[in-house]
């Protein structure tokens, strides 16, 4: 199987996010970037598939802060090839990102073969214009299914599980080539020691594939971005851990559960 995993960097929401002076976009000064969570699962699912059914795993990312580390980490985990498209991801909407990636597939550096499976995180926290996987699928003329949490090779292609709600899942048969939006891999993403990543940085290299930057970067008119009303409803308990615990116990008693 020719497995391609699209990796996208997103702002780390553990850090404080601020709106920049234009009042619309995120202030990039103190932003830290990390791999989008579902993308990490997409990579893991790709590696599991390769181990079980054979094939090659290629990881692909647009340019973004810290993306080289993420690509080398993917190689250290077992990916066969890492591709960086030197088009900055900053400020690109989902539509434009899907266009750049589909141009990669038609560039000669990547091609959709009959055994191609494209894995993408099922959504990202900045998907204002839509999710990447279905938009890429339209560009590539491939079938798409999202919120997938298990993928196995079968005689006719793939057997995948899609999550609904309340723990209910559906089993689907998917013919290759296809694009899947991965919610979570069937196992937790593997850990790779830093020493191994460092070794890979010395021995392997990231392929850079030039793709023209899109002319239309966004298709939506964002008028204003802001933090949700800080007022909130929560009454905050202050004090030492003991004092806080006492106040929580009082609240539990008030609710009648103790």
């Amino acid at each position: 199987m020719n497995i391609l995993v699209i990796l996208k960097m997103v702002p780390d929401t553990v850090e404080e996010l601020n709106v920049s002076a234009d009042g619309k976009s995120l202030d990039s000064e103190f932003l830290r970037f990390k791999l989008n969570d579902p993308d990490e699962h997409a990579l893991e699912q790709g590696l599991i598939l390769k181990e079980k059914s054979g094939g090659k795993v290629t990881v692909i990312a647009l340019d973004a802060p810290e993306v080289d580390d993420v690509l080398y980490t993917a190689l250290a985990k077992g990916a066969d090839r890492a591709v960086k498209i030197p088009v900055s991801q900053a400020g690109l909407g989902t539509k434009a990102t899907a266009k750049v990636l589909s141009d990669f597939f038609s560039s000669g550096a990547g091609a959709v073969t009959p055994d191609t499976l494209v894995l993408v995180g099922t959504y990202a926290i900045d998907d204002l214009e839509g999710e990447l996987a279905p938009m890429l699928a339209v560009h590539l003329g491939l079938p798409y299914l999202g919120v997938v949490s298990s993928v196995a090779a079968s005689d006719h292609g793939l057997i995948v599980q899609k999550e609904f709600a309340g723990g209910l899942r559906g089993e689907f048969e998917v013919e290759l080539p296809a694009v899947l939006g991965i919610q979570s891999a069937e196992k937790p993403p593997r850990y790779v020691p830093v020493a191994k990543v460092r070794a890979v940085m010395k021995s392997a290299k990231i392929d850079e594939v030039e793709i023209p930057a899109p002319t239309d970067t966004v298709c939506l008119d964002v008028q204003r971005s802001y933090k949700p009303e800080a007022a909130g409803r929560a009454e905050i308990f202050e004090g030492s851990p003991e004092e806080v615990a006492d106040k929580i116990v009082d609240a539990l008693a008030k609710s009648g559960v103790i």
Binding site: E129, G130, E131, A133, P134, M135, Y144, V147, A165, L220
Partner: peptide, 23 residues
């Protein structure tokens, strides 16, 4: 924006001239 319907709006947006506003 549910698991059942995820992706339908994005496909529609990619295939038509209508933009999608998500979430």
């Amino acid at each position: 924006c549910t698991n059942v319907s995820l992706g339908i709006g994005s496909i529609l947006a990619a295939r038509s001239q209508m933009p999608l506003v998500n979430f």
